[in-house]
Nucleic acid binder design. Structure first.
Length: 275
DNA sequence: TTCCAGGTGCATA
DNA sequence: TATGCACATGGA
């Protein structure tokens, strides 16, 4: 995919391997809004607006370098999709979400976001996270930044309840005291298994949330987060199983280093077809 | 009213 | 090690 970085925007040429809708609505990120012109997406204290035009898309932002990495623009998705096409089960989902790209999100923001995501629906996850930004994040003018850890440490458990986190409030209160961004960053070089175990040891993080952090934060592609949708998908197309750990093992075995990509195409098509 | 959502923690055997 | 249940909240 060709793209050009200018001073205040990135020009994406072509629509084959980039779609704002597919990227943002495939469930990997919750901090975005639909606008009249397209979408606006938030990451940490930064923002990017995405507009579609005849030849492709324009990502309007002050932080072009940050979002070049965030949208993983250097990776050739046509190549990935070509490899995935050999799996019969993926042919329709790839066509359905052909503009998906896996984002490279901040580790700490991903951790907090996916703890909130557990046993929750996407609408409500977005609502809780937008309240978190509004109440604790720095005012950036027309939006609020993701809160700093210092701010998150300054509130009690009741605060998290009041923004609607429900029983996840205690997980959030604890986890900001267990780990910080520096520690999460320092785990990047660990072997996958050890890294995953470290994540699961954190409050509110189980196998599924750990896999999401590995995929959307650490960029690991040999993981396959199994949630209720993937569980449904599995029991529809494979020999039905109740044990999610076993399902995860089987899917990682099948898709190997491409598991993370396969998961996103399958998740997106399962979810969209329900609505 | 009941069921469900990008599940996890904890008690029990 | 494995199973079962409680857990907030809001939309369908």
């Amino acid at each position: 995919m060709k793209y050009k970085i200018c001073e205040n925007y990135i020009e994406i040429q072509g629509k084959e391997d980039f779609s704002a809708k597919d990227i943002l609505e495939c469930g990997q990120i919750f901090a975005f809004n639909k606008t009249e012109k397209g979408y606006v997406v938030y990451s940490l204290d930064k923002k990017a607006e995405i507009e579609e035009n005849e030849g492709g898309f324009r990502i309007i932002t002050k932080d072009t370098k940050y979002f070049e990495n965030f949208f993983d623009l250097k990776t050739d998705y046509s190549l990935i999709k070509k490899q995935l096409h050999k799996f019969e089960i993926l042919k329709k989902p790839i066509n359905f979400g052909k503009g998906i790209r896996i984002l490279k999100q901040d580790l700490f923001e991903t951790l907090i976001s996916f703890i909130i995501s557990a046993n929750n629906n996407i609408k409500r996850i977005q609502l809780i996270l937008s309240r978190l930004r509004e109440k604790l994040g720095e005012n950036m003018g027309d939006y609020f930044a993701f809160p700093t850890q210092e701010k998150l440490l300054s509130v009690d458990e009741k605060f998290f309840k009041d923004i609607g986190a429900g029983y996840r409030a205690s997980y959030l209160y604890k986890v900001v005291r267990q780990v910080d961004r520096e520690k999460l960053e320092s785990w990047r070089n660990l072997p996958s298994k050890e890294l995953r175990n470290n994540l699961i040891a954190l409050s509110g993080v189980g196998p599924k949330v750990a896999d999401c952090i590995l995929l959307f934060g650490y960029g690991k592609k040999d993981v396959f987060p199994v949630d209720t949708w993937i569980h449904q998908m599995y029991n529809k197309f494979y020999t039905p199983l109740e044990n999610r750990e076993k399902i995860r093992e089987n899917l990682v075995k099948e898709f190997g280093e491409l598991s993370g990509y396969a998961q996103q195409y399958l998740f997106f098509s399962m979810r969209e077809k329900e609505s």
